[in-house]
Computed example of a mutant assay.
Amino acid sequence: MSNSFYEISELLKNVPCLHGDEDHVLTEHLLSLETNYLLPIRNSLLEAKREYSLMLPLRLGRGFWAAGDRLEDTYCATKQGAALDIERLIKEPWLEFYILLRYADFTSAKVISFVHVPKCFGSKISKDISSSVGDSHLRHYNTIRLNPSWVRPWQRVNDARALLASLSEISILYISGHISLADMRISGLDRKSSFLFSTIRDPIEIIISHANYIVSCLQRHPSRPDSQNWSRLCKLEEIPIESMIDSCPDQLALKIIESSFFSRNYSNLLHKAFAPAKDSSTQEVHDHIEICPKCHLYSIDTVPGLYGELGIKAATNDRFNESSRYIDRRGFHSSVRSDVRLFLIGKDLPLWPVLASLAKR
């Protein structure tokens, strides 16, 4: 166990449990500690953060090592300065995943890693895995929780404490999230995993599912932070969303698909998940997966085989897509502009048959 991990563990064990109106408790607790204890802890956190950013230099790691994260003691020589730095660092969204990555180095637990491509029925699979194995033996960790819109900073402190307390009791460590195969390999999770898998889906169905999901969220959970973000980022504020959901939800789905935000963030998701680099060719993606023998791909048709491999007793004939269907393939081809369609799936369409063939290896 590294010194940084040990010191972070000792700090978090003693941090008080926080609630939404008790943020000041953490500051008071840190200020009650000795300066000669705070400074090494601060530096351990910064070393861990820098190590994490080097382990994940792609989408997850980008930006986690900030210009202000300097290790020199002269930068932060006072007790108050060190306490504030520590408070900031343990509220940031990198810490839990760092703990998991480091713990995976020395645990005897079985590590299962899932490259969760958005809208490829991964949420149902994760739910079935958690339900089948049981909470007492499995820590279901999903890196989507790193998104600040989902988790309050004080809750991250509590989650990190709970994670450390439960790690030694875990026999199966399940790590899933919207991270790429390249992220998995750079972080070393592919080597630490006894089983690494991902699910794939027809790229047109991925786009359709995404648009339908967003419309469903706008309809069912309009006040949720992600719904409000989609409304703002897809520039839907100036249209009557509520009336469109009732009268013409297919047109609302169309507006979402043709928004620049949707195209920028939800295009070519299979390529983003499996390519070793941004402009990799189809052959390079194929080779990238082939040289990672632990990576198993499953389509919706082969999920029963995945469940058999993991020992999951769950029905696979349930609906994998819980969103209502406001737009379908016919509407996608007839209504979405051809240039938008090409941009959204231009890299994924030629990749799809390659991935489908690898799913049968």
Rank of each mutant, 00 (worst) to 15 (best):
V133Y: 13
P304E: 07
S193W: 03
I41M: 11
D85I: 04
D318H: 13
G20L: 08
I186R: 11
D246N: 15
Y266K: 05
R156V: 05
R224W: 09
R337D: 10
S335R: 15
Y307K: 01
F121V: 12
E242D: 12
M244Q: 15
E237C: 02
S323H: 06
R62N: 08
F106T: 15
L196R: 01
I186D: 04
R361Q: 13
I214S: 01
I112Y: 09
I239G: 08
P293V: 11
I214W: 01
V303G: 01
N43S: 09
Y75E: 15
S335N: 14
T78E: 12
L30Y: 01
H288I: 07
L54H: 15
L173A: 06
D183C: 08
V157H: 00
L252K: 08
H333K: 05
P276C: 04
S281N: 12
E51F: 05
S198M: 05
W150M: 14
G305N: 09
V303R: 02
N321G: 00
M244Y: 07
D73H: 08
R201M: 05
V133K: 06
S299P: 10
H296T: 09
L33T: 04
S267L: 09
K272I: 11
P57L: 11
L252Y: 06
I125D: 00
S281G: 10
A160N: 07
H288N: 13
Y174I: 02
L297Y: 11
E169K: 14
F197H: 01
K192A: 05
A162T: 03
Y103F: 11
D135P: 13
P222I: 13
S113L: 08
S299Y: 08
L38W: 00
T282I: 15
I125H: 00
R232I: 10
V285D: 03
S126M: 07
Y174S: 03
L18C: 01
W230G: 02
C76Q: 10
S260L: 13
K313N: 14
T316R: 08
I245E: 02
R42D: 00
N321Q: 12
D202W: 09
R220W: 02
S243V: 15
S263F: 06
L60T: 10
Y326V: 04
V151H: 04
H210I: 10
R341D: 04
V115P: 02
P148M: 06
E87Y: 05
A165H: 05
K235E: 14
I245S: 03
A104Y: 05
S216T: 14
K91Q: 10
K360T: 09
H210S: 13
E22T: 15
P40D: 02
K13Q: 10
H24F: 07
I129E: 00
D135W: 15
A82R: 00
M55Y: 11
Y52C: 04
D128L: 02
K49E: 05
Y266M: 10
M55G: 14
S131W: 02
G81Q: 04
S334R: 11
I345N: 07
D69N: 07
V151F: 05
I125T: 00
I8A: 06
R145S: 12
M184H: 10
S32N: 06
S334C: 08
E87K: 13
T143A: 13
E87C: 06
E92N: 09
P304A: 09
T35Y: 06
H288L: 13
S4V: 03
T316F: 13
